[in-house]
């Protein structure tokens, strides 16, 4: 399924609150990773440090530390388990393929479904609500840059966008802008046209506008 542009595969189990997916891979064995919306929320990871193989982890304790330039938090264990293996060197590619890039593999010491995990379809409505209230949306390609621009005038919003775009975005890279009124979709598209840049995608969510620009020159 696809929610607000974010791929959420039907065949996985989810802890929606903590943006975690779970895949059964054998008797009592499960792979655990982070969903695409997680990375749109906190940014591109710079460090993922799993706890050691063999660790017994209680439900709600950390399986791994996840760090981005503006976030450091835990990948919470969705059930009581033991870590059987860890996936090394995944920082670079995890945002490109979050559902194939598991972080840890676990042996469950309880039935995961008893711990409140939701199957794909069951998770859908809850995820929709979470993304809307959290103002999170996804695009076809994961952007190199993201800014949230809330200002009093559309002119000021575009000044901040332009300042960031021309100072920090390199040719070929993309910038994800989250903004809202008084900017409109028309303004955001016209700006790109005037600047001879490309709008890759645009999404609207209540009064929030999510725009993905690409620097072409």
């Amino acid at each position: 399924m696809n929610i607000e542009g974010c791929e959420i595969p039907d065949d996985l189990y989810y802890d929606v609150e903590n943006d975690i997916w779970v895949r059964g891979v054998g008797e009592n064995l499960y792979q655990v990773g982070l969903t695409l919306p997680f990375f749109y929320r906190v940014g591109r990871p710079t460090r993922i440090k799993p706890r050691p193989v063999g660790s017994s982890i209680k439900k709600g304790s950390s399986l791994a530390t996840v760090e981005t330039p503006n976030y450091v938090g835990a990948l919470y264990s969705p059930f009581n388990c033991e870590i059987t293996s860890i996936n090394e060197n995944i920082v670079e590619n995890i945002v490109k393929n979050p559902y194939k890039t598991w972080v840890v593999q676990l042996r469950a010491v309880e039935n995961p479904l008893d711990s409140g995990l939701l199957a794909g379809e069951e998770a859908k409505a809850i995820y929709e609500e979470k993304l809307r209230t959290g103002k999170v949306a996804c695009f076809k390609t994961f952007p190199e840059h993201k800014i949230i621009v809330l200002a009093e005038t559309c002119e000021k919003i575009l000044t901040i966008v332009g300042d960031y775009f021309f100072k920090h975005v390199k040719k070929g890279e993309s910038l994800y802008v989250v903004t809202q009124d008084p900017a409109t979709e028309v303004d955001m598209i016209k700006w790109a046209k005037d600047m001879k840049q490309e709008v890759l995608e645009i999404r609207r969510q209540d009064n929030i506008i999510h725009v993905l620009y690409r620097k072409v020159t």
């Binding site: 709600g60 304790s61 530390t65 760090e67």
Partner: peptide, 12 residues
Amino acid sequence: GRKKWIDDVGEL
């Protein structure tokens, strides 16, 4: 700080 606590203890 937060990072070391999560790395070493992991209880939040």
